[in-house]
Design a binder for these strands. Structure first.
Lengths: 136, 136
DNA sequence: AAAATTATTGCAACTGCTTGCACCAACAAC
DNA sequence: GTTGTTGGTGCAAGCAGTTGCAATAATTTT
């Protein structure tokens, strides 16, 4: 069951543009940027517009079908929720990115839920800092 | 001991523009945006340029003298480190912002440091989610 | 099946922020 | 004090992303 059917089931229109965005998103490696999706979509349908790409990604994000992450390189990257969640440790000295399992933040989620009754949305976080190699 | 002396001590020039940015930053309420700082600076020195404001904030950030936080409203907000660190829980249903003491993330910091030898830079984080009132 | 309603798109303008570059001010060497 | 060097500023252009609006496409009502 993909994004397409979910979209349709919720009453949203399954336009060619949206299908192409979803396909580009799933076909690519993890962490695609909007620009990369736009390039792919445009190759198939030259009249496509980048604001449609952004609006589709926004919609998919609201529905929880994709997560977005800012790895600090000046553009946001998208990842299909179907492929599972994880987080990233980003070293701002060397730029290295260490993957972090979802479970690493379970304890924090629990604390916030218990002490603040706050349901945090920690699906694809980037945490900045200094990696082992760069701590001299 | 303020930002000014720290800047000077590290060999950076203490230009009128930088002084005005630092003063605007300290004089204002917490969480000022670059635009707000620019407006204040411009009132005193009309030739001031917004890129100088951004460059000064960038420098202060690198030196650890200010922290920046994206509360999700399309602009980054700055906060003098001197005034102490804290975090925010941001409800993306109603927009409410709950302050979180720095200590709430100590456990996470320890875990990342112990398990990944990663020194996270968690000084002024915004965590998005749903607050108690908005969970129906 | 035409008319009315609604959702979606494309476009252009705009926002927040960054960057390349020429100029200018400060400090250092002579 | 002139000369060279470095650091900082202002300007204009650029980038990622957003938004208002008119045009269009899909769906619903009649």
């Amino acid at each position: 069951m993909g994004c397409d059917q979910t979209l349709k089931g919720l009453g949203y229109r399954l336009t060619p543009q949206r299908i192409m965005v979803v396909e580009a998103l799933h076909g690519a490696d993890e962490h695609v940027s909007a620009e990369e999706i736009y390039t792919q979509v445009k190759a198939r349908y030259p009249y496509a517009n980048i604001s449609t790409v952004y609006r589709t990604l926004e919609l998919l994000k609201e529905l929880g079908l994709v997560t977005e992450t800012d790895l600090g390189d000046g553009r946001v990257r998208y990842h299909p929720a179907e492929k599972g969640h994880h987080h990233h440790l980003v070293c701002h000295k060397c730029g290295k990115i260490i993957d972090l399992p979802e479970s690493a933040l379970f304890h924090l989620e629990e604390t916030l839920s218990r002490d603040y009754r706050f349901q945090p949305d920690l699906k694809h976080l980037a945490i900045f800092g200094v990696c082992a190699d760069c701590q001299k």
